[in-house]
């Protein structure tokens, strides 16, 4: 939304608040504000302007207290607010852990924050999180752990991240995750564990990750995995445990570069349906996998499902076994 659009929306909000001038309580106005925000797709672009208007009409004491130290943004007690106030750029530490009221967290530019570990964990009411730009953040470990009402997380930019373990674990109603530009973390263990409503997993660069254990454990609705890499994988235990029955499209890249191979038979529908699904299967097994025979590495066994195996051509099979893989359909 451009500046004119924001001004127009702010004006309409001003009128709206004028009409409800008799509402004295902060909470009621917060609820009204939330309604306005919900009616606009560009929610986070306008939030700052709207909150400024709101501050002029309410006791700002609570929010003022939040900004007493502009380097520390702490909403752990959440102060009865449904909408988190804008995050100052100076912030060095940020926590909404265990917050009981915050439902909407706005877009945040937080270049001085070095960790978001557990930042939103157990945030019981959190539903929507805007874009997060955290250019120096090293850890996203458990950032949204057990935020069990979380529905949407927009883009996350944290290219220096080394730990994304249990990032979304327990976000059981999470439906949409934007782009995850989170560098090349060393661990993604349990990253999407028990995300039981999630259907699409965005691309994550796991090429440097040694621990991918439990990454998708129990996330049974996943249909698409846009791309993960097994290039450095060492621990992949239970990565596809109790999930996979709905996965049709998955780019599982760089299989066979280490001596561990996930049990692919859990992905019983991998490659079925659209042509792009079959291409993701073929590319993963035939093109992207390591040529272990040429590299002098010992033979490794692949276990695709019987359904996926049946989708491979005889030429595909020949190329896979020539690369040093035994195929054992299940």
């Amino acid at each position: 939304m451009d500046a004119a659009g924001i001004r127009a929306l702010a004006e309409s909000a001003k009128s709206y608040f004028a009409a409800i001038d008799d509402l004295a309580s902060t909470n009621e106005i917060q609820e009204r504000l939330t309604e306005i925000l919900m009616q606009n797709q560009e929610t986070f672009d306008t939030m700052a302007s709207l909150l400024q208007i709101m501050l002029g009409r309410t006791s700002a004491a609570k929010i003022y207290s939040l900004y007493q130290d502009p380097t520390a943004y702490n909403l752990t007690s959440s102060m009865g607010m449904a909408v988190a106030p804008p995050v100052p750029i100076e912030v060095a530490t940020l926590s909404c852990k265990n917050s009981s009221g915050i439902q909407y967290f706005p877009e945040a530019y937080i270049p001085y924050v070095t960790t978001l570990a557990s930042a939103f964990s157990n945030a019981a009411q959190l539903k929507v999180v805007g874009n997060i730009y955290a250019g120096n953040c090293k850890s996203l470990a458990q950032a949204f752990y057990n935020a069990y009402r979380l529905l949407i997380v927009e883009n996350i930019y944290a290219p220096e991240c080394t730990d994304a373990s249990y990032l979304f674990a327990g976000c059981s109603v999470l439906e949409r995750i934007g782009r995850l530009d989170i560098g090349t973390p060393a661990t993604v263990a349990g990253m999407f564990k028990l995300c039981t409503a999630l259907k699409t997993v965005p691309e994550v660069d796991t090429s440097a990750a040694t621990d991918l254990s439990y990454m998708f454990d129990g996330s049974a609705q996943i249909k698409r995995i846009e791309g993960i890499s097994f290039k450095s994988a060492a621990n992949i235990s239970s990565i596809f445990n109790q999930m996979g029955a709905n996965v049709e499209y998955a780019y599982l890249l760089d299989l066979g570069y280490t001596d561990v191979m996930p049990d692919l038979s859990a992905l019983t529908k991998w490659g079925t349906g659209k042509a792009e699904n079959l291409e993701s299967l073929r590319y993963s097994l035939v093109e992207s996998s390591c040529d272990r025979a040429a590299a002098g590495l010992p033979n490794l066994t692949m276990r695709p499902s019987q359904t996926s195996f049946a989708l491979l051509s005889s030429e595909d099979v020949a190329r896979i076994i020539a690369k040093g893989y035994t195929i054992f359909p299940k």
Binding site: T114, T115, S139, K193, L194, D217
Partner: peptide, 17 residues
Amino acid sequence: AVTAPLPDIAEPAQPSD
């Protein structure tokens, strides 16, 4: 192959400055 509930995880270590 039963999915265990979310583990109790210790506070993550803060990255060193």
